[in-house]
Each structure stands twice: as C-alpha cells, then as structure tokens.
C-alpha cells in the first residue's frame, strides 16, 4: 500500500526507497504539478527558500527552524538536486510534502532540474550508485518538466530561480511559455533559470558567451511595470545566506549551508508576513556526526596520498 507518511518518515532518515515507490510518487506528483500554472499565486505568510543541492540534513534543519510544513507555507526556488550526497531524498521529500500538503508548498524549477545538468553534476551518479540503473533518474526528470517557472506572493513578491529575461517584460508573458519540456538553451524559460544580476547598465551578454546579466535599472523597470516590490531569486552562493541588491528590489536567498560540505557559509530563508515585511532566518550546517558520534555525513578529511 502507498503510505505517504511512512515514506516521509523513511526519507527523513535518509533510508532507501523502492524503485516502484519512487515511480508512483513521481507519477502522482506529475498529475498534481500539471494543473499548476507557470507562475503560481501564493498567499502570505510564506517562507521562501533558495538552493538545497541534495543536502537533506540541512533541509530538515530548514524546516525545523522555520516552523515546519505542518504550520507554515513554503516556496522553494529550485536546485533541489546535484552536488550534495542526498539529492534523491531531498527532492522526494519535497514531492511527498507537496502531495501531502498541496497548498503549503510551491516548487519552482531551477537550472539543475534538467537531464543535461544532472548527468554532469551528481544526481545521475547518485541514482546509479543507489539503484544500479537510471530508472529513478528518468522518473525524476519527468517531474522536473512539470515544475513551475515562478511564483508571485500577494501580488508583490516575484519568485524565480535565476532572474529576469529581456523576453519577459510582464509576469503575464511567462504564462504563455510552454514549460513542459527540457529547459532549452535559449529563450525566456532559459533566462529565467539562468540569468544573474550584476553591476551593469543594460542587458548584457555574459562573458561566457551565453546567458544574460541584468542591472539595477532592469530590476526597477520590471518592478514598476508589474507593480511588485521585490524579486526573490536564488542560484548564486552567498556566504551570509542572503543578499539584497538594487535598493532592496532584489534578493538572493541561499539555503545550502556549508555548500558542498566545504564552503563554511551559513544559509537563510526569507519569510514574507501578511504586512509584507521581510524577515530572514539564518541557519548553519548540521555537524558531520550526531551527538552519539555516529557519522551522518562523509567528512572531507584530507586523504593522505603519495601524490607526485
């Protein structure tokens, strides 16, 4: 029998989930996500969370420090998988919460929720290691294609993973994008997941040769054109967990503490209250060992070798 609460409990312990269970979970999630629009409306109070990157134990801390799914509403800005050791468990836990409490959690797609990126940055490898085949990875990728591209909180906070796009002047224009596909290498959908704010006067090309950079003026124009106060995005590591820019018109929220188990950064979530006030909750990474000395995370102790 399909017992959601039991699966949640297993996931929270980082335990193995059978392939058929993952299949069912993914199928149910797709049905649910299919009916959501590209930009979901969310009411206050709500907690906005940035990148997770497979750091399951830190995700549990996040819920613990911010009220918990039983009591609070959440928006996740994407990048649930890759880099960390528990991408699958982190993503499935969020899906389970979505199935269990559909109106309390909104999942936005990040640039890592794609087939191409997960093949290179860890999620695919993790699945091969845990299951010996790629089926589970394929089921999850199917779900990625249905994730929302953005959210809007009380008509005043626009949430997106990466940033703005010159092809998207109004939030309404995002609604016409066909999102149910692998993230393309160009176009509005790509920009929303990939672009970065920077100290530039106008839309500019990243020196890498793809991807846009946008500046304070683009942000102010977007805010006033759409009648919103804030753009909340993730996508970039911030040592202090969050960083406000452009007269507080844009904030980067980062929710993976001690990123990649070696950066030593703290993480943050942003709570928007009914009066639209912002408050940040900062939290640190879990210790690599629990209080009785059992290892819960592999430590990055230098492995001595006779390198040449």
């Amino acid at each position: 029998m399909f017992d959601l609460d039991r699966i949640i409990s297993l996931l929270r312990q980082g335990r193995h989930i059978a392939e058929e269970t993952v299949y069912t979970l993914c199928l149910l999630s797709q049905e649910l996500l299919m009916n959501e629009s590209n930009v979901t409306h969310v009411n206050t109070p709500v907690t906005i969370c940035g990148d997770i990157h497979g750091q399951l134990h830190d995700l549990l801390t996040l819920f613990e420090k911010s009220g918990g799914i039983e009591k609070s509403r959440y928006i996740f800005l994407g990048d649930f998988v890759d880099r960390g050791f528990y991408s699958l468990e982190s993503f499935l836990l969020l899906l389970c919460y979505k199935l269990r409490y559909p109106d309390r959690i909104t999942l936005i797609r990040g640039n890592h929720e794609t087939r191409q990126i997960t093949k290179v940055y860890g999620f695919y490898d993790e699945i091969m290691r845990k299951y010996g085949n790629s089926n589970v990875w394929r089921y999850c990728c199917e779900v990625f294609d249905y994730l929302s591209l953005g959210a809007i909180v009380n008509q005043s906070v626009f949430c997106v993973h990466g940033g703005l796009s010159p092809d998207v002047m109004t939030i309404d224009e995002i609604r016409s994008v066909d999102r149910k596909q692998e993230v393309p290498h160009e176009g509005a959908m790509c920009d929303l997941l990939w672009s970065d704010p920077d100290d530039v006067d106008t839309w500019s090309l990243s020196p890498r040769g793809a991807g846009f950079l946008f500046g304070g003026q683009q942000v102010q124009e977007f805010l006033s054109r759409n009648g919103v106060d804030l753009i909340a995005r993730a996508h970039q590591l911030v040592m202090e967990g969050y960083k406000e820019m452009f007269d507080n018109g844009l904030v980067t929220v980062w929710s993976a503490p001690n990123y990649c188990y070696r950066c030593g950064n703290v993480a943050a979530v942003l709570r928007i209250d009914d009066d639209l006030s912002r408050s940040y909750t900062i939290f640190e990474a879990v210790q690599p060992q629990n209080d009785v000395g059992n290892t819960i995370l592999p430590t990055r102790k230098p492995q001595m070798d006779y390198f040449l």
Partner: peptide, 8 residues
C-alpha cells in the same frame, strides 16, 4: 548592445 559583453 545586449548581445555585447559589457565587461571583459
């Protein structure tokens, strides 16, 4: 200009 690299 948006297809130019602003800063090398």
């Amino acid at each position: 200009s948006s297809l130019k690299i602003a800063h090398h």
